[in-house]
């Protein structure tokens, strides 16, 4: 009996070695560790994309979640410690960029080679029966009284949009922090705050269900949402918004930048194919995402730009622990 077991394991080993020798990367299942919780935007996008990429790569891609720490630092730290052989990906978004300046880890973001799936444009909305009909009316009102604004977590992407809106319009809002987009939107419906800035992907059901009313897009183009109609862009009235906006949520995944070139090539190929698949295209349309598809050097440049804006904005707010200058991050 024992001999049989030995023989079987020997054969299994031999077959595995053979397979290894014959086929280039990937020969075994790949694990993609999403550093944000299951069910969120980054998680859903990664799960959908990985299912498509798995078809191309011809191996299974397991998606797991490892959350916690500062801006996903626990998950990122653990993946960075693994061998850079391409079998460990990390599901990230631009929200992870502030991990270093908040003391989560000691790395610049260039340790990763990112693949950017896309982003959903930001929109300014008020409770459905709010007295403010246009963005102009809201801005005017803010000149004479306190207007309370919600925009997700402090130093997060939507908060940066709010700060840019203040800069472009010259008014100050009273920013009320919420731990995420969903609670911020709920608080707007209950009228705890006067308006909210979050992404179209997050707001669309509430806009269509007449709980929130969109005033303007913080995006260069207007946006047409079925059963709501066209939402104008704020860029026409306030052109200085375009100085830094739009900022990409840059949802996607990344691989250790030390990974060998052929691994990166294989992944890029699978990524490109998946991005053009009907499934991903359809999903993006349905969920109000704009697809990007950047990878390689271009994606790295985009992340470097976002890193500089995110970290220095946090520094302006005094909401960071360590100065971005310490990591050699240039001012935007």
């Amino acid at each position: 009996m024992r001999i049989v077991t030995y023989l079987i394991s020997l054969i299994v080993c031999l077959v595995a070695v053979q397979a290894n020798a014959k086929r280039p990367y990937p020969v075994r299942p790949i694990t993609n560790t999403v550093v944000w919780s299951a069910g969120g935007g980054t998680d859903s996008i990664n799960r959908m994309l990985m299912a498509e990429m798995a078809k191309e790569l011809d191996v299974r891609v397991n998606v797991v979640n490892k959350t916690g720490g500062v801006a996903g630092s626990i998950g990122m730290n653990s993946i960075l410690r693994k061998r850079p052989d391409g079998y460990n990906l990390v599901g990230i978004s631009s929200s992870n960029l502030v991990a270093a300046v908040n003391g989560g880890w000691q790395q610049r973001f260039d340790v990763w080679s990112p693949f950017i799936v896309g982003s959903s444009p930001d929109v300014v909305s008020v409770p459905f029966d709010s007295p403010y009909q246009t963005l102009d009316e809201l801005i005017k009102a803010a000149k004479s009284k306190d207007i309370k604004a919600a925009a997700g977590g402090m130093g997060g992407i939507h908060h940066i949009y709010l700060l840019e809106l203040e800069k472009a319009t010259g008014v100050k809002f009273k920013y009320i922090p919420y731990p995420g987009s969903a609670p911020a939107q709920t608080a707007t419906i209950t009228k705890e705050v006067d308006f909210v800035i979050t992404s179209m992907a997050e707001q669309a059901p509430l806009l269509r269900g007449k709980r929130l009313r969109a005033l303007a897009m913080l995006h260069p183009q207007s946006y047409t949402l079925d059963s709501v109609g066209e939402i104008p862009t704020a860029f026409a009235a306030y052109p200085s918004l375009s100085a830094r906006l739009p900022l990409s949520q840059a949802i996607g995944f990344a691989i250790n930048s030390k990974a060998p070139a052929d691994v990166k090539n294989t992944l890029t190929k699978a990524f490109d194919k998946a991005m053009h698949s009907a499934k991903v295209q359809e999903w993006a349309k349905q969920n109000h995402y704009e697809l990007s598809g950047l990878s390689g050097e271009k994606a790295e440049q985009e992340f470097a730009r976002l890193e500089s804006i995110f970290t220095w904005t946090l520094d302006d707010l005094g909401a960071n622990k360590i100065s971005p200058a310490k990591f050699g991050i240039a001012k935007p």
Binding site: A38, G39, S44, P205, R208, G209, S227, N287
Partner: peptide
């Protein structure tokens, strides 16, 4: 239920006020 929301979104169902539409 938050987790369930994610699962529904993955299947192309967006719960919310517009669900009956």
């Amino acid at each position: 239920a938050a987790m369930l929301l994610g699962a529904l979104l993955l299947h192309g169902i967006t719960p919310g006020p517009s669900i009956e539409i």
